[in-house]
């Protein structure tokens, strides 16, 4: 993708993906890859809005759905080259907050608010039965300085209360226990 004439180019191009886990299907990386579909890619602010405004808001999705917004070339999978040594910050949200906080999160990512070089890989919003979860993925889970900067930026851009619990999980741990959260 390329920005159109007169459009505001983003630092990186991104692709939006959507996945929905079918009930009764055991999680595995094979059916994960089958269940995840690209929704669209964009390189400019205008292209982002043109896509985003046509998508259902996270709060209107049914349970077990996820949006994944990743830099172009990075698959939203633990095993991807960019992700395999990485991890993610996880914030659990009570129902009703996901749409607004997801928008704030992705605007911060697209606008390069995290200030961690090319460390950010993407962001995910996960709609579940009793809670929703947003997460932001980075390349190098072993770099504490980077991960703390991401956490602090996340807290600021989401305007989270100081007592909000934020968990960091490496993708190798996710692979080991075959679980995202």
């Amino acid at each position: 993708v390329k920005p159109g004439q007169g459009e505001h180019q983003l630092q990186y191009s991104y692709c939006m993906w959507f996945s929905k886990r079918t009930p009764g299907n055991k999680a595995s990386s094979t059916n994960y890859e089958q269940n995840i579909k690209t929704v669209g890619c964009f390189a400019s602010v205008e292209q982002f809005w043109a896509l985003y405004t046509h998508l259902a808001r996270p709060c209107d999705l049914t349970s077990s759905s996820d949006y994944h917004l990743f830099k172009q070339g990075i698959k939203p999978m633990w095993e991807d080259e960019a992700n395999k040594s990485g991890g993610k910050w996880i914030v659990r949200l009570r129902k009703g907050l996901a749409s607004r906080l997801w928008e704030n999160l992705i605007l911060a990512m697209l606008g390069e608010q995290f200030m961690v070089g090319d460390e950010i890989c993407g962001a995910v919003v996960s709609i579940r039965f009793a809670e929703d979860i947003i997460s932001i993925w980075n390349r190098t889970s072993s770099d504490v300085t980077i991960s703390l900067r991401i956490r602090d930026t996340l807290r600021r851009v989401l305007n989270l209360p100081p007592n909000t619990i934020m968990e960091y999980k490496t993708h190798t741990d996710s692979i080991k226990d075959n679980s995202s959260f």
Partner: peptide, 21 residues
């Protein structure tokens, strides 16, 4: 090199630009 940084409000303002629709 220089990074392209956009504040939230700037991005919001572009939401209604004709190119975004």
């Amino acid at each position: 090199g220089t990074r392209i940084i956009y504040e939230r409000q700037f991005l919001m303002n572009l939401r209604d630009s004709p190119l975004a629709r």
